[in-house]
């Protein structure tokens, strides 16, 4: 075993790694935003009294949660292509990640909705709030506040999972690593460095969500309960 590590020639290329990390964060950001929107709509849909609506949302969640992201990415990539639509790898990657994380978010937010006591909704009805008002003020925000830690973990996992989009040559961090290691033949050093960058990115995301939590849920801060 010849231990002859050379990190310097890898770190030299930090601008490409930086670009890759930036793209990873962009993918994570887009998928988090759109995924949250899908999650809220999906959770409302799953609780709908319309059997067809709740059934469709249920099928979406189960189909995504029980198949690998890699296969989903290929399906979106080739599916769009066979429809004659040509998009950049970045758009396809963002779309596939959004569809994926939307299903997990739906399930988490639905659990939050289910945790709102029936009495709260009845009280709101007693105060003559409209259905939309009840959903917004009594169900949605308290529910999201309750499941906020789970959502945070899910979105960090999503950021890590975005590495899989390197397989359709989206130029994110892992794809950059593959390129650098094939250029330098320093695979071990490259992937160790990239693993460290991912760890830093996940710490950044956790810190960001923690700060965001302080801003959007001021009640928690006042009560002094930990996030």
């Amino acid at each position: 075993m010849n231990l002859n590590l050379d990190f310097a020639s890898i770190i030299e290329r930090w601008p490409t790694f930086f670009d890759g990390a930036l793209l990873t964060l962009q993918l994570a950001f887009i998928a988090t935003m759109l995924g949250t929107a899908i999650g809220v709509l999906g959770a409302i849909g799953r609780r709908s009294h319309h059997p067809i609506v709740s059934r469709i949302c249920g099928i979406y969640v189960e189909a995504i949660r029980n198949t690998p992201l890699l296969v989903q990415i290929f399906l979106v990539y080739f599916g769009l292509a066979s429809l004659g639509l040509k998009f950049s790898a970045f758009v396809v990657a963002a779309a596939a990640l959004t569809i994926n994380v939307g299903a997990y978010t739906t399930e988490i937010i639905r659990a939050g909705f289910d945790s709102i006591p029936r009495g709260q909704i009845e009280a709101a009805e007693g105060l003559a709030l409209s259905r939309a008002q009840i959903y917004w003020h009594v169900v949605m925000w308290p529910a999201i506040e309750k499941v906020y830690p789970s959502l945070t973990s899910q979105f960090v996992l999503l950021m890590l999972a975005s590495s899989v989009t390197s397989q359709i040559s989206a130029e994110e961090l892992t794809a950059v690593a593959n390129y650098v290691q094939s250029d330098t033949y320093r695979a071990f050093e490259t992937y160790i460095l990239v693993a460290l960058v991912y760890i830093v990115l996940s710490l950044i995301m956790r810190a960001g969500f923690w700060l965001l939590g302080l801003v959007i849920f001021p009640r928690r801060r006042r009560l002094g309960t930990p996030l």
Binding site: M1, N2, S163, S166, T174, A187, Y191, Y198, I199, S202
Partner: peptide, 25 residues
């Protein structure tokens, strides 16, 4: 646990498959 949960499985795969041979394994 912190290290592994902060790293994508894909990178771990690449590290073991492409990284170890550069160390002679």
């Amino acid at each position: 646990v912190q290290l592994i949960q902060g790293t994508p499985l894909l990178v771990i795969m690449f590290l073991t498959y492409f990284g170890l041979p550069t160390l002679g394994v």
